[in-house]
């Protein structure tokens, strides 16, 4: 019956937390989350305010452990507040993609026929557009704000999820448990959301980790290019602001750069390990 190939309810037999490639990413992400949550308490002022001498090097002044930038803004405060924006953009753009993409993919995969044809052609139109370019265009023609960046990234990256969801739904809709549900007279909404979706979720969850990493990278690139919201600190904007001083005060770009690398790597590793844990075929 259905319960047997229902991976979410099957417990992995190994102890995954012993795996350093799972444990370390989790720790990194936990640290970033703590930074994001604690920022308003640890650094209550505006992180963009000028608070000290410009160009204090890291460890020069214990009050500003990561130093200050050209206007005398505290890099530590910037990094902590930046974690908020960076995580927010990563997670909300991924959530937006996931929601929208799954909806389209599910409709196409489950209903098939003409609906499938139309929805997939629309998806392909979006797929042929380079993600970064689409985001830049969307931001250039309107006022950049964090919400808009999230929407732009979401709008540019949902096709991947839609295609994945469609593939999953096409394979699952002819399975016995779906036929049984149909035979029992369940409506299409119940079948799609209660019966099929949970079975398609593992694939989609793994895809989400890629989307989060992707969202963080796109946001950073956009902020670096000065197209982001000038009123919010993000890690990308910190790198962009430090860029002209990279030969003298390299720490201004290096520190937020390392933060981005670690976070994106952590999300990717996590996704990779989740695939192994959630996919029964890869489990020994």
């Amino acid at each position: 019956m259905t319960v047997i190939d229902h991976p979410l309810r099957a417990r992995p037999k190994r102890r995954p937390l012993r795996d350093p490639f799972l444990l370390l990413p989790l720790l990194v992400l936990l640290a970033v989350a703590v930074m994001a949550i604690s920022a308003p308490w640890l650094f209550p002022g505006d992180p963009l305010d000028m608070v000290a001498m410009p160009y204090l090097w890291p460890l020069d002044d214990p009050a500003f452990p990561l130093g200050t930038d050209s206007l005398g803004r505290d890099l530590t405060a910037g990094l902590f507040h930046g974690a908020r924006a960076t995580l927010l953009v990563g997670i909300s753009s991924a959530a937006l993609c996931l929601g929208f993409g799954t909806l389209i993919g599910a409709a196409a995969g489950y209903l098939g026929g003409r609906t499938d044809l139309i929805l997939m052609r629309v998806t392909e139109i979006f797929q042929t557009m380079p993600t970064m370019l689409l985001v830049i265009v969307l931001l250039a023609i309107s006022d950049p704000s964090l919400t808009l960046i999230v929407v732009a990234i979401g709008l540019a990256s949902w096709p991947m999820v839609a295609r994945l969801a469609r593939a999953e739904f096409i394979t699952l809709r002819h399975r016995d448990f779906v036929l049984a549900a149909r035979a029992l007279g369940y409506g299409p909404f119940r079948i799609v959301f209660i019966e099929i979706l949970p079975n398609a979720l593992p694939t989609l969850i793994v895809a989400t980790s890629v989307l989060i990493a992707n969202g963080i990278l796109i946001e950073s690139a956009v902020s670096f290019l000065n197209l982001g919201d000038a009123n919010t600190v993000t890690w990308g904007s910190l790198i962009g602001a430090g860029r002209t001083q990279i030969r003298t005060e390299w720490y201004l770009s290096a520190i937020p750069g390392i933060a981005i690398i670690l976070t994106v790597l952590a999300v990717n590793f996590l996704g990779d390990r989740l695939t192994r844990i959630l996919n029964p075929r890869l489990r020994a």
Partner: peptide, 30 residues
């Protein structure tokens, strides 16, 4: 980009008098 830094300086200065500046960057045409 050069003007953004001037804007950020002004935002910090004016905030001390209770004037909050919201910076809005854009291309020349816009």
């Amino acid at each position: 980009e050069d003007q953004r830094l001037v804007g950020e300086f002004l935002r910090a200065s004016l905030s001390r008098a209770g004037i909050a500046l919201e910076l809005r960057g854009q291309d020349m045409g816009t």
